[in-house]
């Protein structure tokens, strides 16, 4: 769907993206994560030619973006809907007119436009708000308008730039659920730029980790979180206070193991006691995974580590500083 090779992008003398290589497959949810200023938005804007690039190539559906003329860019943008962190709706217009805007740009006849807008509002659950001004809507509702507007031209790719960053956690979930449903029913490819790990874990099949405009990691979401590289770890903050003394071990639960009670079984098998420091069960793309941090007395440490090794569990010894 999108093929990026050796991409280079700079603003004047400042290089913002360098040497990026990856492909995004049709139908997947592709996450782009990284700290603020990493170049995530810039990368996204290169996809639909809101920004140009200086080197390498971006091919969207087989066509080189930089080689497109005015009409080509217009068509490219029709095929890529975009939603934004701050919604970017026209504040003085009502919900209907905002959703109708892309259709007006493309000279859709008024009747057809009306039919389409109502259909879209139904899809995002805002039929009853059609003639309200967007100013008076909640954040979640505004983003629904944004999604409806982005879908107006029936794109095959949806670009999301921090689409849930301005929303509270509960609203974030409803928006993500909406996106997931839409992706399934409309067969969309979604590219999500975000710095929210919950969003990545819940939605994305694959992730590109950007730092300073360079790729710091690319792969399946599971692999990212089950065996995190140091770069990834700095992004996954956790807020557990570790118990001083003994050794803290973080155990990750991949798919096959999470349902079984690993901990209790280990306690029985080894006949040792350990304290549970904390843990988290998380919803990944399609099921529940998690990790647990336990504190083991030094005298039992070797036994425990051997057991973990033997059972092929993912684990790490946490240093006290973290």
């Amino acid at each position: 769907m999108i093929e990026v090779t050796n991409l280079e992008k700079s603003f004047g003398s400042v290089t913002v993206l360098k040497n990026l290589n990856f492909t995004i497959e049709k139908g997947e949810v592709f996450g782009v994560v990284g700290h603020s200023g990493a170049g995530k938005s810039t990368l996204l804007r290169c996809f639909n030619a809101l920004e140009g690039y200086q080197g390498g190539s971006i091919k969207v559906m087989g066509k080189e973006v930089a080689a497109l003329g005015r009409e080509g860019i217009k068509t490219l943008r029709r095929d890529m809907g975009m939603i934004f962190q701050n919604f970017n709706l026209m504040a003085r217009k009502n919900v209907f007119d905002n959703v109708a805007f892309p259709l007006e740009v493309w000279h859709t006849p008024a009747q057809e436009r009306k039919r389409r807008v109502l259909e879209l509002l139904d899809l995002v659950g805002l039929t009853d708000k059609a003639y309200q001004r967007v100013q008076n809507l909640s954040g979640g509702q505004k983003q629904r308008v944004g999604i409806a507007r982005a879908l107006a031209l029936s794109p095959s790719i949806l670009l999301c730039d921090e689409a849930t960053s301005a929303l509270d956690p509960r609203t974030t979930i409803t928006i993500l659920e909406l996106l997931e449903n839409i992706r399934k029913s409309l067969d969309l490819t979604i590219i999500m730029v975000t710095h929210q790990m919950e969003v990545v874990k819940r939605m994305c099949n694959r992730i590109l980790l950007l730092d300073g405009g360079e790729c710091q990691g690319l792969g399946q979401t599971e692999a990212f979180f089950l065996a995190p590289t140091p770069n990834v770890k700095t992004l996954i903050e956790d807020e557990f206070t570790l118990i001083p003394g003994g050794t803290n071990i973080r155990m990750w639960f991949p798919r096959e193991i999470s349902q079984n009670s690993v901990i209790t079984r280990m306690a029985r098998a080894l006949d040792v006691d350990f304290a549970i420091v904390g843990g988290k069960l998380e919803r990944y793309v399609d099921d529940v995974r998690g990790f647990l941090i336990i504190n083991v007395d030094d005298e039992h440490l070797e036994k425990v580590l051997n057991y973990l090794q033997e059972k092929k569990l993912f684990w790490e010894v946490m240093d006290d500083a973290s």
């Binding site: 809101l50 943008r77 975009m82 934004f84 970017n88 504040a91 892309p102 740009v105 507007r149």
Partner: peptide, 18 residues
């Protein structure tokens, strides 16, 4: 005028004139 709104318009293929 909010830059974001202008960017949104462009992202849907609006011409400069539009």
């Amino acid at each position: 005028v909010d830059k974001g709104v202008v960017e949104a318009a462009r992202s849907f293929g609006a011409s400069r004139w539009q």
